[in-house]
Design a protein around this nucleic acid. Sequence first.
DNA 1: CCCGACGGTGACATTTCGGTAACATCCGCT
DNA 2: AGCGGATGTTACCGAAATGTCACCGTCGGG
Lengths: 225, 225
Amino acid sequence: MKILVVDDDPDLLSLVGFALTQSGFVVVKAIDVPSALQVFAAESPDLAILDINLPGGSGFDICTAIRRQSRIPVMMLTARGEEEDLVRALDLGADDYLTKPFSPRTLLARARALLRRAGLETGGSMTVGSLRLDLEAHLLHVGAAQPVKLTKLESRLLQILIANAGHVVGTERLLTHVWGHRGSGDRQLLKQLVHRLRQKIEEDPAAPQVLQTVAGAGYRLEEKG
Amino acid sequence: MKILVVDDDPDLLSLVGFALTQSGFVVVKAIDVPSALQVFAAESPDLAILDINLPGGSGFDICTAIRRQSRIPVMMLTARGEEEDLVRALDLGADDYLTKPFSPRTLLARARALLRRAGLETGGSMTVGSLRLDLEAHLLHVGAAQPVKLTKLESRLLQILIANAGHVVGTERLLTHVWGHRGSGDRQLLKQLVHRLRQKIEEDPAAPQVLQTVAGAGYRLEEKG
DNA sequence: CCCGACGGTGACATTTCGGTAACATCCGCT
DNA sequence: AGCGGATGTTACCGAAATGTCACCGTCGGG
C-alpha cells in the first residue's frame, strides 16, 4: 500500500513518513506542487495526504489534478481555523481532512479508515460470501461458475459495496466513489448502473438477493453466500 | 445517543446542533450554567460539550457538577490560546477539548472518538426494552420476531423516542427532530406519523402499550419490554 | 349542555423514489 | 472512418412515502 505525502515542512514530512512506514506502508514524498504531480504520476499511490499551504501552489491544485485521473482517497491537511478551506477541499473531492497539529496515531487511524472504506486494503481481489471480485481484470466469480465480465463502473460499484458488505452504503458515497465528485443530482446514473449490475449478478434481477435496495438510504450487499 | 451542548453563542449552538443532529445524534442545548444543570438532570445525556466562557459561571462549574454524579465523557470548548484553561479542564475530569474555531467535522470526529472510548458507540442501532432499532437499514426488531420495515420519518421519530425512553418528548422537539424545523402548525403531520408508526409497532394500535400519548405535552416510549 | 381544543382515524391527493426500457452519445480500437 | 461495447439521457410506470382534509370522540370549562 503506497501513500503519497505532500508537505513543505521537512519535519512534519519525516514525522508522518516515519509513522506510516512503521505501520507497513510505503511512503513517497513531495515538497511542492510540481514534484507532487510528478511523483503521483510515477508512483500511482493508493492514498494521497496533501498539505494545503504549499510554496508555489496549493494542495487544492494537486487534489484537482489527482481527481481528474483517479479516485484514490485524498486526505487534506489544514491549519487550524480555516473553515472555508475544508469546504473547498471536500468540494474538490477530498475524502477527509486533518487539522494541524495532529497526532500520528490519528493520522494512521484516518488513513486506514480511508483505505478500508475505499476497499483498497485488499490488493487485487475482494471476496464476500460466494462472490470474488477481481479488480484488475474486472471479473466477478460467482461460486464455481464461469466468471462474469464487468465494466469499469460496475466494478467500482461492486468494489465499494463489497468493501462495506452487510452495511448500507449511502447514495452520496456511491456516487463519489464511482464517478468522483459531482452534483448530487445524478441519482439516475446510479439507478442505471445498479440495474445493469443486477442483470449480471442476480439470479433473478427482478427480485434481488444480493444487491439490496434500502429505501431512502442507499444499497447494501448481502454478506452471506 | 444524546448530547448536551452548552454555549452562550446562539449561532455556534445551532451550527453544532445541526451538525450533530444530521449525524443521527439527539441534541439538547443550554445557554448558561443553571439551565445546563437542569437539562443535564432532566435528559441524562451520554456526552456533554461545554463552552468554558459562559455568562454567570463557567463550563468548569458544569463539568464539576457533572463529574459529581456521572462519568459520561465531557468535551470542553476553549478560545484560542487559553492554555491554562486546558490544564484546568483536564484536571476537573474533562476528557477532551477543542479550540475555537473548529469545524463541525472535527467536532463530530472527536465526539465519536469519545463515545467510542466510553464504550457507548452503538454502531447505528439503539435498544430499549425488547425493541432494537437499526438506523442504517430502517429496521425495527421487536423481540425475536421478524423485523419491521420503517420509513425514513418513522425511523427518525423512533430514534428520538428511544433516546428519551421513559421520558416525555415534547411535540415541538419531535417536529424539529423529524422534519428539521418548520412552522409549529404541523401537528397534523406528527399525528399521522405517530398513527402510522403505531400500526407497525403496537400489538393493538388502538390501545398503545409502547408509544404512549401524554395529553397536552407530547409522547413517551415505555422503557420496559 | 354546548362549545372548542385536542387527539385519533380513515380516505384521498401529491410527491418522491426506485425500476425499467429505449434511445443517444461517447470512447477505444482496428 | 467504422464498429461495438460502455456510458449517459430521457421518459414512463407503479409503489411507497408523505402531506392534506374531513370527521369522530373525548374531555373540561363556561
